[in-house]
Amino acid sequence: MVTQAFAQEAETPTEQNLDAAIDATRGEPVEGAVGHDPTADTHATTEAHGGEHDSGVFPPFDPATFPSQLLWLAITFGALYLLMSKLALPRIGGILENRKHIIDADLAAADASRQKTDAAIAAYETALAEAKSKAQGIADQNRETIQADLAAKRSAVEADLGAKLSAAEARIASTKAEAMTHVDEIATETAQTVVTQLVGDVSTDSVRAAVAKAKE
């Protein structure tokens, strides 16, 4: 577009164009032909682009755009800051905070339940241990009574047997003693008979004395 404008001006180097170029440069003297004036070019380009700040400098460094950009930067950034700080961020922050509260509460409830369970388990275990020790005691007691009973019965039987044994022994001894006295008489009689058959009569007393002597 610059070239078009340039070409147009170059084709018709009229007095009017010269005036326009001088106007554009705000009264600064123009040397040579109109087409060679860079400011005139720029002016024409600006018109061709329709409201663009194309003054020939690199657009980001064009100071003519600075006021508008700063104005809108202030307006938009201020608006964004207000919207964020008053509306959007508190809303999201509230959601996150709420979730954190609920999770914390749930965790606390879970912890409480766990502690309750632990307590129940501990109570059960103590009850179990108590029951066990009680059962042990009862078993011990039973065993002791049975043993005592058994021991008493056994000692009674033993005593009974002992008595019977000693009685029997006494009877045996008396029978034996009795038998022994009979042995003496038999021996005396036998000896007397034998001696009578061999040598004649002999007194019973002397035979008995001899038997007693032989027995010793």
Binding site: T65, P67, S68, Q69, L71, W72, L73, I75, T76, F77, A79, L80, L83, M84, L87, A88
Partner: peptide
Amino acid sequence: FSFTNSGLFMVVSVVLTT
């Protein structure tokens, strides 16, 4: 001071973000 294409996109950006 003008409302430019730059200002327009700043407004668009704020509207989009919000």
